[in-house]
Amino acid sequence: MDGDLGRFLRSRRARIRPEDAGLPAHGRRRVSGLRREEVALLAGVSAEYYIRLEQQRVRNVSDEVLDAVARVLRMDGTERAHLRRLLRPPEDRRAPASHVRPGVRMLLDAADSVPAFVLGPRMDVLAWNALADRITGFSAMPEGERNMARQTFLSPRARSLYRDWATVAVEIIAHLRLYAGRHPDDPLLGPLVADLSADPDFARLWEEHRVAEKTFGAKLLRHPELGDLDFAYETLALPGDPDLLVVMYTADPASPTGRTLARLRQDQGLSMRG
């Protein structure tokens, strides 16, 4: 998306206090965080060069300069990779995979002891197993609404379903931002973001330009029929199709959530795999 490099760098500057970077904080400041000139000073480049970098008017930026800017702005590994993609879009811009192989569907069904589903481009939900459907109701959703971002921000039930909705919202947007950096030419991404921007929380969080991999964490639900469910989740990228992610919800078998899953498996005729 045009201009994302400058907005990303500005958002990273805004989160760093001058005193944390070893600079005096006295005097009136018109911007939150570091000024562009201060980033340039700390990174060892001219102010003019850094300004042109934020404006994306610099070609062939060296790895040394990128590393220096990333260091000053305290970027983690994911943010550094995102910065490089914004500056150096990949030459191979094939459309992201959106087809789930039959073997992956069989894998979901075989993982019958835990809820599992596949996320595709733009966080579309492409496939799921029976337990995941029981927890999330994917099969009852219209196909165009089977998208984790749409469900999180546009579904009336989301804020009551997720006990930690604010955390979920940040994770969703950070992953969607990461996807945007990897696939800036995706023609369906812009319309999705436009739809989601109708929600004020999405619009505000989207402008923060956070990026993060969707890897693992906790998912705390308040299910309308099953009550409170405390899951851990793991996310696995599919070999050969890195834009397809298998998400699995897990729970200690001895926990209340684990016992609920055991009851659901029994009710649905699903057996525990040894």
Rank of each mutant, 00 (worst) to 15 (best):
M1L: 14
M1E: 06
D4M: 12
F8M: 12
D20R: 11
A21M: 14
G27D: 03
R28E: 07
R30T: 00
A47P: 01
E48D: 15
R57M: 06
D63L: 15
E64T: 05
V65H: 10
V69K: 07
A70R: 02
L73E: 11
R80C: 12
R84P: 03
R85N: 05
L86M: 15
P89H: 04
R94F: 07
R105V: 09
L107G: 11
L108E: 15
A111C: 11
A111E: 05
M123P: 02
N129H: 00
N129K: 01
A140I: 01
G144R: 02
G144T: 00
R146H: 11
R159V: 06
D164Y: 05
T167R: 10
I173L: 03
G181R: 04
L189P: 03
P191I: 04
P191K: 13
V193E: 10
D195H: 07
S197V: 04
R204C: 02
L205V: 05
E208R: 14
A212P: 13
T215H: 14
H223S: 06
L226R: 09
L226I: 01
A232E: 15
T235I: 13
L236E: 01
P242L: 06
L244H: 11
M248A: 11
T250P: 03
A254V: 05
G258T: 00
A262T: 11
L264K: 03
